Computed example of a mutant assay.
Amino acid sequence: MQALSGGVAYGLKYQARCIANVIGDSQSQQTSFLVGTLSLREENEVHLIQLSPFGSELTCEGLYSHPHEIWDLASCPFDLRIFSTVYASGGDYGAALWRIPEPSTHHNAPQLEQLGCLDAHTHKIKCVLWWPSGRHGQLVSIDEETFYLWSLDSSTMSAKVLSQESAGMLNHMSGGAWDPHDINTLSIACESSVQFWDLRSIKQVNSIGHAQVRDLDYNPSKQHIVVTAGDDSRIRIWDLRMPNLPSEELTGHTHWTWCVQYNPIYDELILSAGTDSTVNLWQTSPIQGRGSRPGRESPTGPVDPLVRSYSDFEDSVYGLAWSRQEPCIFASLSYDGRVVVNSVPQNIQKEMNKVPKM
């Protein structure tokens, strides 16, 4: 796809925090996203939006009512019509699995089908995790105090608790990530550390002692490498074989960073965003070499890893989503309900095209 000449925008009526790429259909070549709203007084919505083939506009392909405020949304990796939400209703929180209805010619607005609830939680739920590398019969849900491992029947989407564990009384959980290279490894962001758990023994096996991590992601092609975002505005890359110090620090945000994501295909590219209303695109190593050394170099010396800052927003940016269908495309979501789809610069796209896809 050609680079977008500028960001393509889509506006929601209500505030929003979460966006996800629709990833469950390996045959689809069109980029689609799910966005959930966060309204206290109005009925909330899930928008299914699609980028046109030439990247000139975003269109709404489906608009579905959702009964509660949506605080987290994740797309099923093996069925494009299924997704999960974490929601709030008054002082209560819950998590559920949903199916998008088949396209219909009826005039009545189609409704989401609720497939099941993850109803074992007794504290505020933070997120639901699907294993990112394909079909798997388990789910993970994380609340402020405890994480749960669920057995998932993929035919009925019913879930049962297999095990649960607390990160400790002094560790307030804020999110997590599931290792795409190891189905048995889960990482959890806490107030004072990042913890790594073996899901077979439900034992902690490693940790990074770094305060106030808000989000983290695994390198999609290199084992043992994670990236974190936190309250000190810095993005850090870690080698879990040497967890005492980060292997690289990226500075470019001016306030809290709330989300960070590796490109799903090209692991040299990282997106980050936060409360400075800015989305930063980073390139951390030469695409041709897939080297592990920090930064990039040119004949004149080191190259700034910050490729571009996107300042399309007037409010905090809480949501990021790369397109798996078109890896040079990504979407950002600000709290005021503004979705903007951008592409990486043309010179980076040319480098990306030289590298065989994983």
Results as ranks from 00 to 15, higher is better:
residue 353 N to D: 13
residue 299 P to K: 02
residue 318 Y to K: 10
residue 3 A to P: 14
residue 268 E to Y: 00
residue 18 C to F: 11
residue 234 R to W: 04
residue 136 H to T: 05
residue 277 S to D: 02
residue 215 D to Q: 14
residue 334 S to G: 01
residue 61 E to S: 09
residue 103 P to K: 13
residue 276 D to N: 00
residue 335 Y to M: 09
residue 291 G to F: 01
residue 239 D to A: 01
residue 124 K to T: 10
residue 30 Q to A: 08
residue 263 N to T: 04
residue 139 L to T: 01
residue 327 P to S: 04
residue 348 I to T: 07
residue 234 R to P: 01
residue 180 P to V: 10
residue 342 N to F: 06
residue 274 G to L: 00
residue 170 L to S: 15
residue 316 S to R: 09
residue 95 A to R: 09
residue 117 C to M: 15
residue 92 D to F: 12
residue 260 V to A: 05
residue 56 S to C: 09
residue 318 Y to A: 05
residue 296 R to W: 00
residue 57 E to Y: 08
residue 341 V to E: 08
residue 350 K to L: 14
residue 163 S to Q: 15
residue 138 Q to C: 10
residue 274 G to R: 01
residue 17 R to I: 09
residue 306 L to Q: 09
residue 125 I to F: 10
residue 251 T to D: 12
residue 287 I to V: 10
residue 61 E to T: 07
residue 333 L to Q: 04
residue 210 H to L: 12
residue 35 V to N: 12
residue 64 Y to H: 04
residue 121 H to G: 06
residue 32 S to D: 09
residue 140 V to A: 06
residue 254 T to E: 15
residue 293 R to L: 00
residue 254 T to G: 15
residue 139 L to H: 03
residue 154 S to I: 15
residue 73 L to R: 08
residue 278 T to V: 03
residue 300 T to V: 11
residue 43 E to N: 13
residue 338 R to M: 11
residue 131 W to D: 06
residue 344 V to R: 08
residue 325 Q to H: 07
residue 9 A to R: 13
residue 231 D to Y: 01
residue 139 L to C: 05
residue 219 N to E: 02
residue 150 W to F: 06
residue 206 N to C: 06
residue 153 D to H: 11
residue 32 S to T: 08
residue 259 C to W: 10
residue 260 V to H: 01
residue 48 L to T: 05
residue 249 E to C: 08
residue 128 V to M: 05
residue 286 P to V: 01
residue 269 L to Q: 00
residue 232 D to P: 02
residue 169 M to S: 15
residue 41 R to L: 15
residue 159 A to G: 05
residue 174 S to N: 15
residue 7 G to N: 04
residue 291 G to S: 10
residue 50 Q to K: 08
residue 98 W to L: 12
residue 118 L to A: 13
residue 278 T to F: 01
residue 17 R to P: 11
residue 218 Y to I: 02
residue 197 W to P: 02
residue 245 L to C: 08
residue 132 P to R: 04
residue 349 Q to G: 07
residue 47 H to I: 08
residue 315 D to E: 13
residue 209 G to S: 12
residue 203 K to M: 09
residue 120 A to H: 13
residue 315 D to K: 07
residue 47 H to P: 08
residue 1 M to A: 12
residue 248 E to C: 00
residue 111 Q to S: 15
residue 297 E to Y: 02
residue 165 E to I: 12
residue 162 L to T: 12
residue 278 T to Q: 05
residue 136 H to A: 09
residue 218 Y to A: 03
residue 100 I to F: 15
residue 218 Y to W: 09
residue 180 P to A: 12
residue 260 V to S: 02
residue 25 D to N: 13
residue 141 S to N: 08
residue 169 M to W: 13
residue 165 E to H: 15
residue 299 P to A: 07
residue 272 S to Y: 01
residue 101 P to E: 14
residue 46 V to N: 09
residue 257 T to Y: 03
residue 218 Y to T: 02
residue 336 D to S: 07
residue 69 E to P: 11
residue 287 I to G: 00
residue 282 W to P: 00
residue 22 V to F: 10
residue 291 G to V: 01
residue 278 T to S: 07
residue 2 Q to V: 06
residue 324 R to A: 05
residue 325 Q to G: 04
residue 13 K to V: 10
